[in-house]
Design a protein around this nucleic acid. Structure first.
Length: 348
DNA sequence: TAAATTTGACCTGC
DNA sequence: GCAGGTCAAATTTA
C-alpha cells in the first residue's frame, strides 16, 4: 500500500466516520424535537460526507489520486465533474468514456457544496475550508438575485496551484451559499492561518448574520443549562462496553457560554450509574443546546471517554430524560472497564 | 506600502 | 451574439 493510497484510505475513512457521527447526531435531534434548521444542518453534513467519500472512490477507480492529493502539481486535470445533479448516474459514477483528459478550463474536476450560514458553522462555513483564497472577479448572473464571486488560490504563482472556487448566494434562501470548487489544490504547505483574513462581501455578510445569531443562541444555552441542571438523570447502561477504536472527536469549541460554578451532585445519578462524582458543566453548546458534551475521566489510567449526553423533554413528565451515549474513547487500550470514572464534566 | 478587493474590459465556449 | 469566466488596472485596506 503506497503513501498516496494510505492518504486516500484515511480520507475516505474520515469522511465515513464523519457521516456516521452526523447520522448519530441527527438521530438524537430527531428524537429531541430539535429545530428543523439543526436537523437540516446534520443532513447536509451527512450528504457532504457521502459526496466526498464517493469523490475519493471515484478517483481511485479511474486510477487517479483524488483532488485532495493531485498527481502532479500544476498538471491538467482529468475531465471529471461531480456536480451531483448532472453527472452522476444511478450508480453514483459516471461512465468511463467520459474521463477524457482535456486541457480545457471547464474540464477541471468540479464539485459543489451547499453551505448554510448558521450557528453550527458560522464563519467557518463558506470561507473557511482550510485553504487561502483570493477574489479575482465578480459577475452578475442572468436570473440570479445575487452576484457570483470568483476566487483562486492565493498561492497560484508561488505553488502553481490552480484551484478555484465560485461562491453564489442562493436566491431562495440568503443564508445558503452554493460553493463550486474547480481544480485540485497543490499548496498543502500553505495553511490558511498564515494569510490575513479575506475582506470579501460574503465574509462581511457572514459576520453580520453570525453576530445576529449569537444573542439568541446565548439565551437558548442559558435556558438549556438551567433545565439540565434542574433535572439531570444519567443512564449509563453499557458505559464500559460501547467502545470504538476511532479517534476521539468532539465538536468545535465555542467561546460562548461558560459556567464553571455550577455543579451537579452524584446523588442525581441513577442507581445503575457508575460513581461519577460531581458534574462540572463548563460548556454547553450554544448552537445545539439539545445536545451537550461531557467527558468522563479515569484519573488513575489518565484516560477518558467521550460521553454524549442528550436531553429530551417529554410531555408526560416535567423532568427531561437524559440519555447517555458513549461515542468514542481516546485511549481505549488504557481504559479500565472495572474502574469507575472519577469525574463527568462538560467539555471546554 | 504591500496585499487584497473591485470593476470594467476582454476572452472563451455554446 | 450572449453569458459566464478571467484579467489587470484602479482602488481600498491594514
Amino acid at each position: 500500500m503506497d503513501s498516496a493510497y494510505n492518504g486516500e484510505y484515511k480520507a475516505l475513512l474520515n469522511e465515513l466516520i464523519q457521516g456516521m457521527e452526523c447520522a448519530k447526531q441527527l438521530r438524537v435531534h430527531l428524537n429531541s424535537a430539535a429545530s428543523s434548521e439543526t436537523q437540516y444542518f446534520f443532513l447536509q453534513r451527512i450528504l457532504s460526507s457521502y459526496e466526498k467519500a464517493l469523490l475519493i472512490l471515484k478517483w481511485r477507480l479511474v486510477g487517479q489520486s483524488h483532488p485532495v492529493a493531485p498527481p502532479l502539481p500544476g498538471a491538467p486535470e482529468p475531465s471529471i465533474s461531480l456536480d451531483r445533479s448532472l453527472d452522476i448516474n444511478n450508480n453514483g459514477f459516471k461512465e468511463q468514456q467520459d474521463y477524457n483528459v482535456s486541457k480545457k478550463r471547464k474540464a477541471m474536476p468540479t464539485w459543489t457544496e451547499q453551505v448554510r450560514v448558521g450557528a453550527e458553522n458560522g464563519l467557518e462555513g463558506p470561507t473557511e475550508d482550510g485553504y487561502s483564497w483570493r477574489k479575482y472577479g465578480q459577475k452578475d448572473i442572468l436570473g440570479a438575485k445575487y452576484p457570483r464571486s470568483y476566487y483562486r488560490c492565493t498561492f497560484r504563482l508561488m505553488h502553481n496551484c490552480w484551484a478555484t472556487k465560485q461562491v453564489q448566494r442562493s436566491d431562495d434562501d440568503p443564508t445558503v451559499f452554493d460553493i463550486t470548487y474547480k481544480g485540485a489544490h497543490t499548496c498543502t504547505l500553505a495553511p490558511t492561518t498564515s494569510v490575513p483574513p479575506l475582506r470579501s462581501p460574503e465574509k462581511q455578510e457572514l459576520k453580520q448574520i453570525h453576530h445576529q445569531n449569537e444573542n439568541f443562541q446565548a439565551m437558548q444555552s442559558n435556558q438549556m443549562l438551567m433545565n439540565l441542571r434542574a433535572s439531570l438523570r444519567v443512564n449509563t447502561d453499557g458505559l464500559d462496553t460501547k467502545e470504538t477504536a476511532f479517534p476521539f472527536s468532539f465538536p468545535p469549541t465555542f467561546s460562548g457560554l461558560t459556567d464553571e460554578n455550577q455543579h451537579f451532585q452524584s446523588s442525581q445519578v441513577d442507581d445503575n450509574a457508575v460513581a461519577l462524582g460531581t458534574y462540572s458543566p463548563s460548556f454547553v453548546s450554544p448552537t445545539t443546546p439539545e445536545s451537550n458534551y461531557f467527558s468522563a475521566s479515569q484519573q488513575h489510567t489518565n484516560a477518558f471517554k467521550g460521553v454524549h449526553i442528550s436531553s429530551a423533554n417529554t410531555s408526560s413528565t416535567n423532568s427531561p430524560i437524559v440519555g447517555l451515549d458513549l461515542d468514542y474513547s481516546l485511549h481505549p487500550a488504557t481504559l479500565d472497564p472495572n474502574f469507575p470514572f472519577d469525574t463527568l464534566e462538560f467539555l471546554t
